[in-house]
Nucleic acid binder design. Structure first.
Lengths: 342, 342
DNA sequence: CTGTTAGCGCTTTCAG
DNA sequence: CTGAAAGCGCTAACAG
């Protein structure tokens, strides 16, 4: 692999200075058409393309954005059934704008608690900014990163912390909507199936109850726990072989609904006749692929990715901008065939 | 955000030269313990950490590996139901070794046909090497990249092209195994459900038939096509409402099997009593989460990620190494409950 | 419009 | 064991 041509080679060949070459590379104008042509000719012939490392070093800018993910690096059973369309859609959204705005994407797999690491990553210019998408950022460490006004944007809403750059869907609001929807249909008891922390959910439900005085009764099936004890299938069997089962289910893991349905069918229960189900989709229309078609909340993760990325880059590129902006994307409930008509 | 300390600051504070500081940073030895302590003290006090951009520039090495993915950047319906555990597991495997060997991961979303782009990426030192995992690399362009001996390693086997650095599972072999397995169970006709190109599959089957004289009859359900015409659900209904349906199904999309099962159940058909199903899992044990438990081929994608990453970095770090090495990982068939006992 | 030149922060000979 | 100094390739004043 022979040595790549440098800007000096080009300058020499074109009979101009490196400054001029730099000007045409960066389209800064102030170059005679004729000169420009000579330079371009030389670049062409030498098959020149600027050394990214040198450019970054000179400008003190890497043009790389980091994305902190939640995917575990070591084998971890808990990942197994997690709906990773969330991740892939987010990724696609972010990537679309990075490409357009000329950044690359570095994937980072490191606990957010390691603030020093992130500090370093940014200080050392390995990356110009950070997108944080993991659920785990309601920590003192993370807040510290934000308070330092590090160039980062995050996804999600942190209770009592409206600081920094963030994008979120209204999780609280749409859960409320779903509960209200089910309640309107006549359900008074719902089974909530999720990987989320039970305590967080309970807190939310209390709030929901307080806010709108719903009498909805909620039971909780912890997917982590389920996976450690015979799996979801067994849990569902347990709950639904008893006659007094919850007639409505809400789960944020669309991946699991068809499994649930199969188990129910096998117990002689039909969806939605005997049990109604609502879930969430991260790709619009995805609920249509199931049988029966699933009534879902659509959470526009792709759009959220687009939004964070733009938010972050806007901040990075115009240092003036205020470090405080929250963008809210609305989720919508799409009625299909998995909830019994009222 | 105040300016980060440089190696000069450290040198000054410690009363030594930058060369010495560099020596302790890089653990090159040849530094008196006492001097070393002084330097470390100074680094500590200044909260110094080397500027990654400068290091890369000076060493002409970015310590970044690129990963070419198949995820589309723009919205693309065809992604919808694709099993993306393949991607996430691969990612996790790669990432584990990168972390250990001190590389970062850049995600790249660009057609492999754009060889110039990849040439550049590597020549310009934006990345030190490339992992290619998309299915689309049996092209002249890709082969050209390999022939240039670019530092890249890829996943998959390219017909009649045993060149470069690659890792693959024996797709041909395990398909053969599955077919043989089903045949042994008494099936003579199988429905193959896949996103793969029909022509490729047909070619493979022909080969399979030729090789072992199986009389297995194969029908093909193209998932792309299905998604454009009413979806998988309707297709399955079409095929299985007729009495003369295939009694065995093989699909590489585990995501879809539970849907298929539900549709079959609804038609009064049981798995495995009336229809047997085998699929593939990319996380070991995943088939256990379904109902019934799915008989799967386990393809060790995580391990494949580990293997390519190591292959690539070995090549990058010891320039001597031959540019020709294929690693084969075995897949295994795990019998569970979705195939009727013979 | 174009050229000169001083960095950017770190690594790496080469002397000592 | 340590220091001086020459780059690495490009950018960005500044001078003309």
């Amino acid at each position: 692999m022979k040595m790549a041509a440098t800007i000096y080679d080009v300058a020499k060949k074109a009979g101009v200075s490196t400054a001029t070459v730099s000007r045409v590379i960066n389209k800064l104008g102030n170059v005679r058409q004729e000169t420009k042509a000579k330079v371009e000719e030389a670049m062409e012939q030498l098959n020149f393309t600027p050394n990214a490392l040198a450019v970054s070093f000179a400008t003190n800018k890497s043009n790389i954005i980091g994305l902190v993910t939640t995917l575990e690096s070591e084998r971890n059973i808990s990942n197994e059934m997690v709906n990773n369309f969330y991740f892939t859609e987010l990724f696609r959204g972010i990537n679309t704008v990075l490409k357009r705005r000329n950044y690359d994407l570095l994937i980072i797999n490191e606990s957010l608690d390691n603030t020093q690491y992130y500090d370093g990553l940014i200080q050392n210019k390995r990356i110009d900014g950070l997108v944080v998408s993991t659920q785990l950022h309601n920590t003192a460490q993370f807040k510290k990163l934000v308070r330092q006004k590090l160039p980062l944007a995050y996804i999600g809403k942190i209770p009592n912390f409206n600081q920094g750059l963030s994008v979120y869907a209204r999780y609280y609001k749409y859960t409320d909507e779903i509960l209200g929807y089910l309640n309107d249909k006549g359900f008074e008891r719902v089974l909530f199936i999720s990987y989320r922390q039970k305590q967080d959910l309970i807190k939310m439900w209390d709030q929901l109850k307080y806010d709108n005085h719903t009498k909805m009764d909620i039971e909780y099936l912890d997917l982590y726990e389920a996976h450690q004890n015979g799996g979801l299938v067994e849990k569902i069997k347990d709950i639904y072989q008893d006659g007094n089962y919850p007639r409505a289910i809400f789960t944020d893991e669309l991946n699991n609904v068809q499994i649930i349905i199969s188990v129910l069918n096998n117990l002689g229960l039909q969806v939605p006749k005997d049990v109604s189900i609502v879930s969430v989709e991260h790709i619009h229309g995805m609920g249509n692929n199931y049988y029966p078609k699933i009534t879902n909340v659509y959470v526009p993760v792709y759009d959220m990715g687009v939004a964070v990325a733009n938010l972050l880059i806007d901040f990075i590129e115009q240092n003036q901008q205020e470090y405080n902006k929250q963008i809210i994307l609305e989720s919508i409930l799409i009625e299909r065939e998995s909830v019994k008509k009222g």
